[in-house]
Amino acid sequence: MMLHMTCAMQLAFPATNMFQKIVTSALIAGFGAGLLAAVLQFAFVQPVLLHAELFEGGDLVHFGSSVTLAQPDIAGDFDLVRNGLSIAFSALIYVGYALFLITTMIAAQERGHDLSVKAGLVWGVAGFGAVQMAPAFGLPPELPGMAAADVTDRQIWWFATVAATGIALWLIAFGKNWTMWGAAVILLAAPHIIGAPVPSTFTGPAPPELGAEFAARALGTGLVAWMTLGALTAYLWQSAPQEAS
């Protein structure tokens, strides 16, 4: 699909070389960071998720007649299809992040801001802040079975929060006066003052211990993957042969 899109874009846009270089850098960086995210997910996040699914499916019961063991034996077979799909989708999502990230990096670079690998790390932290931390502040990463508001409402809030935070971080980094920085503060705070859609009742079957661990681990692995993404994208874009302008 990506290949077809690339070909179509090449016909539509005369700056073919530039387009190719941007997309190639983003593809490699996104794929690398996505693979790392998948490995971290399997090591740290997936066990908590599988544990919670036992509560979601009723195999384990929290608050019942018996004591809930914190460490049940849940080492199951490695589900090749399920985990294969996770790797593929992790790579796809991080390629998506990379495509967007690299356009903002280039836009800043064209305005005279230096883009080193170190700066790439900071870009990665900012990307994490906009895409994972800010939405998680209102909609914490969901353990399977958690009660939540309507999915469409949450998605609208999610996209709006990511956009507002992203613009705010850009204004903080590249703004030149207090009007811009003031606007940034308003944009940062607005989604959380308005508030994320919340469920009317709590019905989550899993223990809060698992929910807290899941949220912290989802955010922690996200930060590592995003910093890798930022550094890799900056490095690959810097290494791509630039056209003489």
Binding site: F13, A15, G96, A98, F100, A107, W158
Partner: peptide, 22 residues
């Protein structure tokens, strides 16, 4: 041209995140 290219790449990125993630 550069702006068009950047926009195209950004739209591809958002599209991919939407399809794969949402």
């Amino acid at each position: 041209t550069s702006l068009m290219t950047l926009l195209a790449v950004a739209i591809m990125g958002v599209g991919l995140i939407t399809v794969a993630g949402h």
